[in-house]
Computed example of a mutant assay.
Amino acid sequence: MSNISTSATELVESLDQLNQQLLIFSATLKNSTLPFWLPGVTATTLQQAADLYTDICYRDGRDGRTTISQHGLIGASPELIEATLRLNQAKAEFQRVATHYHLSESTELQQELRRRSETIAGLLHRQGASRIHLKQCYRRIPVFETCPTKIGFSWYTSGRSIRKLTPREAEEMLLKMDTSQPHIQIQLQAVGQLRPGDMLAQIQRQVPVMRANPVWKQKDSTLRKAQNTSLPIIVALNSDNPTLPAYNEPPLSPPEARSRVERSDLKIDPQAFLPSLRVHRYLG
């Protein structure tokens, strides 16, 4: 019991720090007079932008596995840059503490923080919040402390994660399924015919993400730094010429088809070998 109490105390203190930085950041952002761009929104105000960044609670009807995504650009003064950096530090510290105490697996700690999250929602003038949304607490706000010459936005739809499996590991995963089903039996027979040294690839397609491609042109060089972005980028603007860098406006929705051409030397069979596990064989 004392361990839960100690954990909850440190978590609440960390959450209080996060809350304080959220409020400072939100107030600083809403007082900004610098230009900004949020696509697909009419009559946009900085209050709407602040809501995107400070939304750290679940809402009714929202899938807890997903986060709200929105790209764009927010021109920033030195004060807003500093507030952003401090908020990101508070996010990192809360993630460290929450991960250390396995918050995502602890019902007791989640209940302890639920009351505090309702207080946060009230301070941010938000209704309907029920509990902390960990993914949205953890994700950092993208920030450029120097203004790029231009920023290109594009949808990345070809992302996937690949996990290598041995035949034995694949068999163990299949045995945890309903082995009375004919399609599972067929897959067990198939994996049983593999040699011990064979390797398999379990493929997970990733959801489309917006990618930002900023370019900084200097006297003798050009710096590029591509990164995924699920929130508008905070961009430091030149006080002498406070204008946003050049940018394009991509479609609001990702393309349905893959835009990348399949490689001719692809080493993974595109046909699933064990469909129930999304497992493929290596070619050659």
Rank of each mutant, 00 (worst) to 15 (best):
M1W: 10
S2L: 06
T6V: 14
T6F: 13
S7K: 05
E10C: 06
L15H: 05
D16M: 03
Q20T: 14
K30I: 05
N31F: 03
S32L: 05
L34A: 05
P35S: 08
A43N: 08
L46M: 13
D51F: 00
R65N: 14
T66S: 15
I74E: 04
G75M: 08
E79Y: 10
L80D: 06
T84K: 09
Q89Y: 07
Q89D: 11
E93N: 10
Q95W: 01
Q95Y: 07
V97L: 05
T99S: 15
S104Q: 15
Q110D: 10
Q110N: 08
E112T: 12
R115A: 06
R115H: 08
G122Y: 02
L123H: 07
L123Q: 14
H125C: 00
G128C: 07
R131T: 13
F144Y: 15
F144P: 01
T146H: 02
T149W: 14
I151F: 00
F153D: 06
W155G: 04
T157I: 10
G159P: 10
S161R: 06
R163H: 14
T179A: 03
I184N: 06
Q185Y: 05
R195T: 11
M199A: 11
L200K: 12
A201D: 05
Q202R: 15
V209C: 08
M210L: 12
N213H: 15
Q218M: 09
I233K: 00
L244P: 01
A246N: 13
E249K: 11
E256W: 00
R258P: 02
R263S: 12
S264T: 13
Q271F: 03
L274N: 02
P275G: 07
